[in-house]
Structures are given as C-alpha cells and as structure tokens.
Design a binder for these strands. Structure first.
Lengths: 295, 295
DNA sequence: ATATTTCTTTGACCTTAGTCAAAGGATGCC
DNA sequence: GGCATCCTTTGACTAAGGTCAAAGAAATAT
C-alpha cells in the first residue's frame, strides 16, 4: 500500500470543509420546515412504508427514541401505525396522505435549492459538474469498500457464490450448473483463499483462489454485485487475489472466462493476463489466461 | 438562463446525500474527542486568535451561547481571554498551549481519517479523485457567486477598482495611473453599467460598461480577485456585461487590453471578440477587440 | 455632553437528541 | 409446553444546543 500524499489528504479535507459548509444544508436542515431534523429524516425514510425495526437499523436510532418519534408523528397525523402482517411483534409505519404531502414538499424544496445552485452555471458547466460528482462518488464508494479474506464456507462467501451463479446462469446461453462452483474446502485455509468485498457491511463482490497444481494458482468466481459495478471493484478483488497468491508462493495464476463476459476478458488483459491454451477441460471456458507473478 | 435539467438536480442531490452520510463526519464529529461539537468547532475557529464578535459572525452563534462556551473553554484552560486592544468592548480569545495541542490533535485525527479513506485507492485513483474534487469545488464556488449590477459610485465598486488598479500597477512594467479608471458617473444609470461579483457577501470581481459612441459600448476594468481566479468568473462577468449592453441597444462592444495580459486576450478571443484597429488613443492599449452583439 | 448603538455577560428557559432499564407481548426453538 | 429471544413501549434521566431579555460597559454619532 503506497503512503497517501498529504496533498491528497489536504485536498479531500478542504473539499469536505467547503462542501459541508456550503451545501450540507441541501437535503437535511431546514427543509424539514418547522420539524426537528430527526423527525424529518424519519418521515423521509419511511417511504412506501417500513417496520420500526427496519427504520431503527437504517437510521441507527435507539428503540425508545424511535418509538416516541413515531408516536409524535402519528399524533400529528403524518403517519399511520399498524401491526405487521407477518409478525405481530413488529409495527408497520406508513405515511398518511398528509405525511406524503409533506415528504413531497420536502423533496420539492431540496430540488429547488439544488436547481437554484446550478442555475447560474452554463449548460456545459452543469454537465462538467455532474460528471465530476459522479467521479468523486464512484471513487469514494470504491475507497469505502474493503476486500476481506474469509473462510470459503462462511455464509457471506456462499451468498456471493449463489448470487454469482444466478447472475451468470442468466447470462450464459447454456445456463450455469452450480456443481461447477468451487467447494468451500478448496478455497479455505492452506488450500486456497476466498475474498469478499464489503460495502457498509454488505457483501458486494467476491473472488476465489485455488491451487491448480504446484506453483500454479487458479482464480475463479470473480464477481461484483450489480449495484457495485463500474467502480473498479473487480480489479481490487483481483489485486487482493494476486497479492495473496504471491504470498503463498504461487509463480503464476490462471483463469478461464466465458465468451459472453467480454468486459471480464478486457479487464484481465488490462491487468497483465495473457491468453494461453486451455489448461484443463472446463465446460464454461472459452478463453484461457495466465499471468506470471513477480514476487 | 436555461432551465436546469432534472438529471443534474438529481445527481447533485444524490451526491449530497451520499457525501454527507459517508464523509460528513470527517472534519467535525467525534474528532472533538470528548468535547461537544460546538466547543470543538469554536476551538478550531479561533486559530491564531479572534474576537468574540468575529467568531459569532463566522459560526453564526447567539451572543449568550458563545459567551458561555468561551467561558467553559477558558475554565478548561483551552483558551485565554483578554480585552481587545483596539476596542474595550470586544473580547479577544486566544488558544493556550493546551488549546493549541488539542487543535493539532483534532487536525491530526481528521487527516488520519482522510488518509485512511484514500489508502485503499490506487495512486492513479487518488489523483483522479483529487482532480474531480477540484472540479466540483471550482464549479460550486462559481455557482455561488452572483454578478450584480451596482452603482458606479458604490463603495464595493470603488473597492474593486482600487484593487484592480493596484493589481495591474504591479503587473504593467510602466505601472498604472489611476486617472485612467472610469469615473463613477460614466458607468452609472443611463450612461453605463458596473457589475460587482459577490462570493458569500464579499466583492471578488468587477466589470464596467460605458458608452463609447452611439450604438457602441466599451468594456473596461474586468477584474477578478486573486482568490477567485481560474473559476471562469471573468467569463460570467463578461456575459453579464454583454447582456446588459444588448439590453441597452448597443450593437457592438469594444475593448482594449495590455500586452502583458495574455490570458485576458485569450479569453476575449474565445468569447467571440475579434482584433481590430485602435479605436481611440489609449495609453495602456496594446490589443484592440470588437464583438458584434446579436440582439 | 448626551443619546444611541455596540458588545458582552448573565439568568431563565426551552427543545432536540439521545441513553438506559424495566416490562409486556409475540415468536422461535427444542 | 417451556424457555430464550425479539420487538416495542414506557418512565426516568441527561447533555447539547440554543433563544430571549435585561443590564452594564464602552464606543460613536449628533
């Protein structure tokens, strides 16, 4: 990991300072008209109805505090509360028409504030701003994702593999048979490795490393959740796998990809993988790659 | 003014939402260790000493509230308070060595948080992020600046002209004589126009329009404060002047620039001005431009 | 010199935001 | 069926953040 230059740190801090001071008001504060911030946020978060439990998780509030706020909003006629149909312990909260009106109004104000801000920019500058915002957001998201080594049998690992299987089953014309997935023991402990990428606690990607033969590792099942694509996460997973492989003494890594996964092929090429002859008979392999590792 | 597309508004709001939730903590929250946010901010804002009055303005706090917070910090040995040398009504607040230590520590933590965030990005991505942050900040600053028509004799107008004169006096090899400045009455009311650009209430640029002869206006003294350069503000001032000129029925605008102001020449060319022969004898004029206005 | 304004301090008061623990009903697990 | 767990409600409490008005001292305007 390269040390972070102070210039970058300063730039980020300066931006943060400026942004929170100038724009931080945009969504939150005083858009909730005569309403305390907490209540305004709660109202907004309810959306098309939610259970108190969900809201507690999403907003990170104390149960008692939330219960009281919900009661206040109910007394004001903004929300309706009912017992959750599936579980009588849970309370379901929904917006009343009045509540919906207020949320809409809140949104309208936030939108008007944003529009007012953009108004004095020329059209080309607005486009430039939007593009730069997207870049910042993409990179901040990527920075917030951690790629962790987990046991191949861990629930998160299996959940990622299931999602991976479902994903490519839909993309491969011939479908995908889950028996082709790595077995947990192949990618655990001394035999292999499994990485899961987490964004705010949720698994959003994975990648597996297993031993193909002495000195040669194989990369399998590099997958990124649809919500986390186009961030550059696959590359990070790949880097984690390569670092792990090098640490384990592998001198080369191989992998195969399916003909339909053209982006994947491009990424592997860009990351230094070169096409080779098939190294094993594999149902879904159309392209075969290898990269020599420099320790 | 073109209407603002909802895409741009949505992008800005989404970014704002994400940013405040993920990064908003960076400078403020829980960096003030065991200290309430308000106190931490106050401590930070004191810097190399300030009067309570300044702090009140900068932080937007109630006088009573601020007074009490300052007293608390004083009791904790973080600040020292004294009567302001120039005005016995004012209180001057300074950091004690302990206070300075805490601010430094606060800074260190914020820096560490920012560095931790950047750490998982590849060096090229850090550079990309920094560039995108600069773009966002530049455009947001530009968007926050208003360009207002003011009287040519207004104090802000004169202040800008003084700054302009001092600025180019330092840049022109032959210096600059203030008698060359427009007189207030030339750029006021029906005879001409004067625009001042304001950023957060402070004048940061100006531009003047006067009548050269029937149907022909002259642009003079387009100036941008050093702190507000490279934002694209000069163009905005120019646009404001052109719009005003068109509204006043001018069919063409002329101006001259000094040989040393190469950026200005480039800007005028890019904005549709074409070089012409000198239209009047003018000491500091090396290049002469004209633009036909389309009403 | 007098009146007005400015700046700070103090007392009284309020809302918001949040914590903690006890209790009661509902569910899941064995 | 019994026990542990989960979810919500309620009461009691606290700190933070802030408002308002009165009052006194100092400066400025007239």
């Amino acid at each position: 990991m390269e040390p972070v230059s102070t210039d970058h740190v300063t730039a980020l801090r300066r931006f943060n300072r400026y942004f929170t001071r100038r724009i931080g008001a945009l969504d939150d504060h005083y858009l909730g008209q005569d309403r305390p911030l907490g209540e305004a946020r709660l109202l907004f978060e309810i959306g098309d109805g939610a259970s108190l439990r969900e809201l507690r998780g999403r907003l990170g509030l104390d149960a008692g505090y939330l219960s009281r706020m919900a009661k206040t909003l109910q007394a004001q006629g903004m929300v309706r509360m009912s017992v959750h149909p599936d579980d009588n312990r849970l309370r379901r909260v929904e917006l009343t028409p009045d509540g919906r009106t207020e949320v809409t109004e809140q949104n309208r104000r936030a939108g008007a504030l944003a529009a007012g801000l953009l108004e004095s920019l020329a059209p080309a500058q607005r486009t430039e701003l939007t593009a730069a915002l997207a870049t910042v957001q993409r990179l901040l998201r990527l920075a917030a994702i951690s790629v962790d080594l987990v046991d191949g049998a861990a629930p998160d690992a299996r959940a990622c593999l299931d999602a991976y299987a479902a994903d490519i089953d839909a993309r491969f014309p011939e479908g995908f048979d889950t028996s082709d997935l790595v077995r947990p023991e192949e990618v655990s402990g001394a035999r292999g490795a499994f990485f899961v990428a987490y964004e705010e606690g949720r698994p959003v990607g994975c990648g597996a490393l297993r031993r193909l033969r002495p000195g040669i590792g194989e990369i399998r099942h590099v997958w990124v959740h649809p919500d986390a694509r186009r961030l550059g996460l696959a590359r990070r997973i790949l880097t984690a796998l390569e670092t792990e492989a090098a640490a384990r003494g592998f001198v080369a890594l191989r992998l195969d990809t399916h003909a339909t996964l053209t982006e994947a092929q491009a990424m592997y090429r860009a990351c230094g993988y070169r096409e080779i002859d098939p190294y094993v008979d594999h149902v879904y392999g159309d392209f075969w790659f290898e990269k020599r590792l420099t320790p």
